Structures are given as structure tokens and as C-alpha cells.
Amino acid sequence: MNEIAHLGALHTIAQLSVALIGFSGIVVALGDRAIGSWSQAERLQLYALVLPPATALAASFAPELLATEIGSHEEVWRWSNLVLGLLHLANFLPFFIIGLRKGGVTPMQMALSVTGLTAIAAHFLAAAGLVGWLELIFLAGLLQQLGVGLYNFILLMGMCLD
């Protein structure tokens, strides 16, 4: 089995992801209304609150799991970047299709979308072996996903407390 660098950081990111996902239940409860009565922007923010941290949670275990079968340290991180890139793309596309087409996206969400697209591209380039810093790209992508969730948590909390 391959020794994984940054295992503590990966586990911390997983714990933060679980906490953020758990707080989404509190946000919904504080909303004091059924999800069906939420506006399009609120539903989009709830989506962006839950899925990016879920992506970070799932992907944070990829290097450790892949290391059980892959002997090369570089290959573990290349495959991990591919996993994160695919998960990130899968949760970004609905946000892009719904949010950007129908409006209701804040300037900060737009900026986070640009960083998200950049991260997705970096993950695929890292997976293809076209760039270095495989571990840094992977960790930065996980943190970007947490940042998206945290920002949308703050937005939704503001709406629920109004």
C-alpha cells in the first residue's frame, strides 16, 4: 500500500464537509417553510450549499482508497484529480444550466463559478499528466468546493433569518 501524503488535511476537509452538510439541515429548519415554497435562487443556493461539500467529502477519500490498489504515488494523485474533476463537473453543470441561464446568481457565485471551471480544468490537466503539483491541485480543488458551500451557507442563512 502506498503511503498517502497530507492524510491529516484530507481527513480534516472530510470533517469540515460533513459539518457543512449537517448545517444545511439547520438552514432548512430555520427557513420555516417547505422547500416547495422556496424561490429559484434559494433552491439554487441550497443545492450549492450541499453538493460541493459532498463532492469534497467523497473526493477526500479518493487518494487513500486508490493507494490500496495503485503502487505509484504519482498515479494515485493523477487518478484522484480525475475523480475530483469528474465529481466537480457533475455538480457544476446543473448549477450552470439552472443558475446562469435563469438568473439569480450573485457576483460572488459568478466568481466562484470561474474558479470552479479553472479547478475542473486543472484537475483534468493533472490527471492527464500535463501539469505538476498534483497534490496541491487536488487539495486546492477540495478547498474550493468547501468555499462554495460555505459562501452559499452564509447566503442562505441571511435569507432564512430575514
Rank of each mutant, 00 (worst) to 15 (best):
N2E: 15
I4K: 04
H6S: 11
T12L: 15
I13S: 00
A14R: 09
A14W: 04
Q15V: 13
F23T: 06
F23I: 08
S24W: 07
I26D: 14
A29T: 09
A29S: 13
R33I: 02
R33Y: 00
I35K: 05
I35D: 06
S37W: 11
S37D: 15
S39A: 08
E42Y: 01
E42F: 00
R43K: 12
R43W: 02
R43S: 03
R43N: 09
Q45P: 06
Y47A: 00
L49D: 09
L51F: 14
P53R: 01
T55N: 05
T55M: 05
T55I: 03
A56Q: 06
A56G: 02
L57D: 00
L57Q: 01
A58S: 13
A59F: 01
S60Q: 02
S60T: 02
F61S: 10
F61K: 10
A62I: 03
P63C: 00
T68F: 15
E69T: 13
H73E: 15
E75W: 03
E75Y: 07
R78G: 02
R78F: 07
W79V: 10
S80R: 00
N81K: 01
N81M: 02
L82R: 15
G85T: 00
L87T: 08
N91A: 05
F92P: 00
F92R: 01
P94V: 08
P94I: 06
F95V: 03
F96K: 02
I97H: 10
I98W: 12
G99E: 06
G99C: 03
L100A: 05
G103T: 07
G103S: 06
G103V: 07
V105I: 10
M108C: 15
Q109R: 08
L112D: 02
S113P: 12
V114E: 14
V114R: 12
T115H: 06
A119D: 13
I120R: 11
A121G: 09
A121H: 13
A122G: 07
H123M: 04
F124H: 05
F124G: 04
F124A: 03
L125V: 03
A127S: 07
G129C: 02
V131Y: 07
V131T: 15
G132M: 02
W133S: 12
L134I: 04
L134S: 04
L139S: 07
A140W: 09
A140G: 03
L142T: 06
L143H: 13
L143Q: 12
G147W: 11
V148K: 08
N152S: 05
I154L: 13
G158R: 04
M159Y: 11
M159D: 14
C160H: 12
D162W: 12
